[in-house]
């Protein structure tokens, strides 16, 4: 039976109100005089804003830039982006929490996404994900997420390591893969998607 978690403190889980201090007014647009923004980050966000007919379209690229600079979409980083874009931090936080690729809690430097959707799970992705989670359980440097379809069902079961698609990953290759991630090496170069020829051009009987 699926276990229902119960808490001594009743229905209010600790941290339920951590995202916002309800005793304060919502933060307004940050004051440029008191909000230091790293020059690089400012330049990147301003360049993105210039690309669109409306500057707010740059919200996603700006948050991606914040994540690159700070490692995650930290409140400090979001405030900096809000300052450059002249928006409220609340607006950008609302956007950031909608998308799976933005982390609004501190996380490991390496992002390992394991696809566990239908096509991949038919080919053993659940076991693969479990194995990877076991191996990296005590490694704060690696974030493992079981991700919904990453659009690479031809190399199922597959893993995206910091945006690099690798697959099909056999269970006995997991050690090597995680070793590559830990040591900042190219992950399983022989299994990378970018090198794979199109199935349509392969001669018959040459699959896998």
């Amino acid at each position: 039976m699926a276990e229902v978690r119960r808490f001594e403190h009743g229905s209010r889980v600790p941290g339920w109100d951590a995202s916002v201090d309800l005793r304060k007014d919502p933060a307004g647009v940050p004051d440029p005089a008191t909000t230091p923004v790293p020059a690089e980050l400012r330049a990147e966000i301003e360049a993105q804003m210039a690309k669109y007919p409306d500057f707010r379209s740059a919200a996603l690229p700006a948050l991606a830039a914040v994540q690159r600079h700070h490692g995650w979409c930290s409140p400090e980083g979001i405030e900096q982006a809000a300052c450059v874009m002249r928006l409220t931090p609340g607006y950008l936080t609302a956007v950031a929490t909608f998308y799976d690729m933005f982390d609004t809690v501190p996380t490991g430097r390496n992002r390992v996404y394991v696809c566990t959707n239908i096509s991949c799970s038919l080919r053993g992705a659940d076991e693969l994900c479990h194995r990877i989670e076991q191996l990296t359980a005590d490694d704060a440097d690696i974030q493992v997420k079981h991700f919904e379809c990453l659009g690479a069902c031809d190399i199922a079961p597959m893993v995206s390591v910091n945006g690099i698609y690798v697959g099909p990953v056999e269970l006995d290759e997991v050690d090597e893969l995680i070793d590559d991630v830990r040591n900042d090496r190219d992950p399983l170069p022989r299994k990378q998607l970018r090198l794979r020829p199109s199935a349509d051009t392969l001669p018959m009987g040459d699959g896998q």
Partner: peptide
């Protein structure tokens, strides 16, 4: 056509 799942040659075919 993207063919995937339990097939021997998963991939895109025109």
């Amino acid at each position: 056509v993207s063919v995937s799942g339990h097939v021997k040659r998963p991939g895109n075919y025109e």
